[in-house]
Write a protein that binds this DNA or RNA. Structure first.
Lengths: 236, 236
DNA sequence: GGCGATTTGTCCGTATGTATA
DNA sequence: CTATACATACGGACAAATCGC
């Protein structure tokens, strides 16, 4: 059983403290000397941890000045309305999407049940990456009941916003009916897509969006990079 | 009369041992080689039994790692009121807690801010494990403003329910003001406590409970075993 | 701008445990 | 079993960049 290296646990500790907001973007971390005193290790070991955080884009070091927090996790509120573009823009970042797949195929049994479709009815599969200022924060697969949303596939090739795509096919508003959250490990391909290392933790959500009258419009599967996103729940 | 296949009786034996709690959720079963030695059959026969258990969702095998008991994850709703004992009981399991620490110390700056305390005022630290039918599902640290909840420490030695403890000091009801969710990896000690392997993913929540008039009564840090708990969010 | 203290970057070396050929 | 390679961790020395006075 391989023991986890000291430098790795230090990197994890610091990354969590940054994620908690203990150190905010732009803040200067303690000096390498202070950190090595705090963790009771050699300065080189701290440097190893810091260089790891640097590679992940979490901190950046400036010789003679110090090590500074580069990026903090995005706060991602789960409320009545969950809108990716809005959520990202609210943190002062630029939302974007990279499409990996856009295809139509017959639904399976669970999809039929969740989306209230007849067995074999077609669904639109929309898979891609969610970017926040060019940094990938999530891998998503959206499943739409295309038979009720004719033309959505075309609109999704023209806009990166699901909300806009739905509006173009007549859905003015929609609500988040349920979100289920679990923690998972990255698969190899997800690690590649999200720029993580294999086995890094992910927040996996399974969600259902419906129209105001309760008709399902989207089943969403999303894998958020665990150290780049904080889901927030605030009952109204 | 057709005799029951060997693989089927092996599957039945293992399934009973899991149900008895001999192997708890998250536990690693013996290797296929060990099992084939134990039952005196070929490894392929054991594989047949394990694949049967896998199809029934009782175990899950991970290449290169082993075969693991895959309990159905507990649904854990995050709403206006979040109550551990109620949530677990609602799934037909038996809730319990194991106390690791119960101590009073002066609060730090973040605690003072969150709990609306003066710097240096005392807080009660309540750390332990949350169990669902004896299987550990979470590691928690609760921080209470003990100066406003005199006697809570005594009551928490007599009940495992935070809700009951708070009622005993006059808090009849309390609300979940906010929950923040991130994904992390287990530390070595957490892996030991939760019966997970080092690096396994955790759901980490940071929460705040307040009285009806908004006075903070508990800051909670909780680490849920990622594969044993599903947090559910349903806006009212 | 100059100067010195601070801080990171880079190099030298030593020792240990683990995996692999 | 030996030999080899690699990752980890520690210790020290000095160069280069930065910042405050």
């Amino acid at each position: 059983m391989p023991r986890t290296p000291v430098w790795k646990s230090i990197a994890e500790t610091l990354s969590v403290e940054i994620a908690r907001g203990h150190y905010k973007p732009g803040d200067k971390l303690p000096t390498e000397a202070e950190l090595s005193a705090r963790f009771g290790v050699n300065r080189h070991t701290v440097r190893h941890a810091l260089s790891d955080l640097g590679e992940r884009g979490i901190v950046r070091s400036r010789r003679g000045a110090g090590v500074f927090v580069q990026s903090a996790p995005v706060d991602y509120p789960l409320g009545k309305r969950v809108r990716f573009h809005q959520n990202i823009r609210a943190t002062g970042r630029l939302p974007n999407r990279r499409v990996l797949r856009l295809e139509t195929r017959p639904c399976d049994v669970t999809e039929a049940g969740v989306l209230a479709l007849s067995p074999g009815e077609n669904v639109l599969i929309y898979e891609g990456l969610s970017l926040s200022s060019d940094a990938p924060v999530a891998h998503f697969i959206s499943i739409f009941p295309i038979t009720r949303l004719a033309g959505l596939d075309v609109h999704l090739t023209q806009t990166t916003s699901v909300t806009e795509g739905l509006r173009a096919v007549g859905i003015e508003d929609y609500l988040r009916a349920e979100t289920r959250v679990t923690a998972e490990r990255t698969t190899t391909t997800q690690a590649l897509h999200l720029g993580l290392r294999e086995g890094d933790p992910l927040l996996h959500t399974v969600s259902l969006n419906t129209t105001l009258d309760g008709t399902p419009v989207e089943r969403g599967l999303t894998w958020f990079a665990g150290d780049r996103v904080t889901l927030t729940v605030t009952p109204d």
